[in-house]
Nucleic acid binder design. Structure first.
Lengths: 293, 293
DNA sequence: GTTCCGCATGAATCGATAG
DNA sequence: ACTATCGATTCATGCGGAA
């Protein structure tokens, strides 16, 4: 079923291999991709110095130089109407916020991207700790970049009901919660319309309140499922192509599959690739694999 | 009473005239101030193009150049252990977020400031709105700058009630639990639970959830009283000097007075100065006034 | 079946200690 | 002096077992 979308060829669009996890450096892997074949890029790149063991850790002073060749490929493979969402947060180094993220914003604009928006992901359950000179860091940036001023956006797909639910349940936008709410809304319409007459749906803001998923038995996703899910709903339709060039444990691909989008996940780490592929019922392939396009 | 603090001369500190509203451009007014006489600067500068009628509106492309001479004076009058909080948010211009704010961060660092932290002020009560390409902007930056790595900070003064789970757990901490913990402590095993006994407050994060005050129709920059209040409690003690060089309707000064700090407010707009002075029971003075120091 | 409680676990940061 | 490693600090969350 899911595979069948793989065979679809859109009008005026080259075929792109989808629903694949590819092991390799996205800088190299993406070179075999055709131009403008991706509708949405959602990713959380390796952070500075973190995960030194798995990714080698990028030094903050070299972060922009490391990133730009890769974002150059993102720019090429993204459709004109596509969107690039970059989840990132600068670290506090030596008592000061490092500037590599805002330098990256400037550099990406110079590369040709439009810096369209900056969403705030408010991490309700951030890492604890107390220091003499700062509090816990409870937010991350979700930077939105586009190639053109006109991009695809489906604002209605992320609307939330107004009223009591907005205060409590809908603050958490997790997949199960959302599904439950939607079913309740629909059944509510059927059974008791009067409760819903006059009740409106509201558009969200550019602040997202999501808790990190930390207690999971398996490997923790630094990135809650609801985060890519929200952007995928906002910026794509069914069967659109969603790329995560720094896939990690595979959260973006899982969200895309769940929402019946096509996914492409790339990661340098074989263990993560295989973990993600397993989650998705796919087989991870080598980055050296050449697509017949 | 409040005036009497005006006469206080701290050890090793020149006298600074306080509890005054001064009408003039802070670039000029501050030149008559001694070095290192201010403990905290909290301000929300004129935004780009907004408030064109009252402030003349600064063009985004010239914003950094306009700001730097003023921040140079801020740097001079601020004490070594003082803090500068800059509430600002870049506008979306021509479908894109303008970069003058992040350029300003880079420029301020070059000027000698440390970019210590970036707080997010989440404006939570506003009605959701929608544009074709974006949602309502529900957050602003509160950039923290310092002169030195060691600065005054009173974290206990802004603690918040703990999460529901822990609160209920602590409330139900029974006598046996308490006894067990105490015996553990005495025997030298286990953690020091006494830190948690009787504690119902937790340290906050760098995300501030404050509602905007919508009733303030006279001044377009609706800066809720709670915002300067929070930073004043966090970074100053009683009788410390709080400066707002772009005072607007006077919210920072009101917050400082309320918390028994000394205030200095500066604004170019005479109407705002008089409005603020009236609120504070003071008389606005001309910027040309020379302090006898 | 609910509700409640115990517990492990985080894309963290700083300061001290060691090489 | 400068870098690398380690321990201490801290709290929202979800899971699993208990009441």
């Amino acid at each position: 079923m899911q595979r069948s979308t793989n065979k679809r060829i859109m009008a005026g669009e080259m075929e792109v291999p989808t629903n694949k996890i590819i092991c390799g450096d996205c800088a190299a892997v993406l070179q075999s991709f055709p131009d403008e074949c991706v509708d949405l890029i959602v990713t959380s790149p390796p952070y500075v110095e973190c995960r030194k063991k798995t990714y080698g850790g990028i030094h903050p002073d070299h972060y922009v130089d490391w990133f730009l060749p890769r974002s150059q490929e993102f720019l090429r493979v993204l459709k004109r109407t596509g969107t690039f969402i970059l989840n990132i947060k600068e670290k506090a180094i030596n008592g000061e916020r490092h500037t590599y993220v805002i330098e990256l914003i400037m550099a990406l604009r110079k590369q040709g991207w439009l810096w369209t928006e900056e969403f705030v992901w408010h991490k309700k359950n951030c890492y604890p700790g107390k220091w003499p000179n700062r509090f816990r860091d409870a937010w991350e940036r979700c930077l939105q970049f586009n190639k053109a001023k006109k991009f695809k956006m489906f604002q209605e797909s992320v609307m939330v009901p107004m009223g009591e639910w907005r205060k409590s349940r809908l603050r958490k936008l997790s997949a199960t919660d959302r599904q439950r709410d939607e079913s309740r809304v629909r059944s509510g319409f059927g059974k008791n319309i009067s409760n819903w007459l006059g009740r409106e749906m509201a558009y969200p803001t550019n602040v997202l309140h999501l808790a990190t998923e930390c207690g999971n038995k398996n490997h923790s996703a630094a990135f809650p499922l609801a985060l890519p899910e929200w952007f995928i709903r906002l910026f794509t339709e069914k069967h659109d192509v969603v790329l995560d060039p720094f896939l990690g444990s595979g959260t973006t691909a899982v969200a895309a599959k769940h929402l019946e989008r096509r996914y492409i996940g790339i990661d340098t780490n074989r263990v993560y690739c295989e973990m993600a592929a397993k989650k998705l019922g796919e087989v991870a392939v080598q980055g050296s694999f050449k697509w017949s396009i």
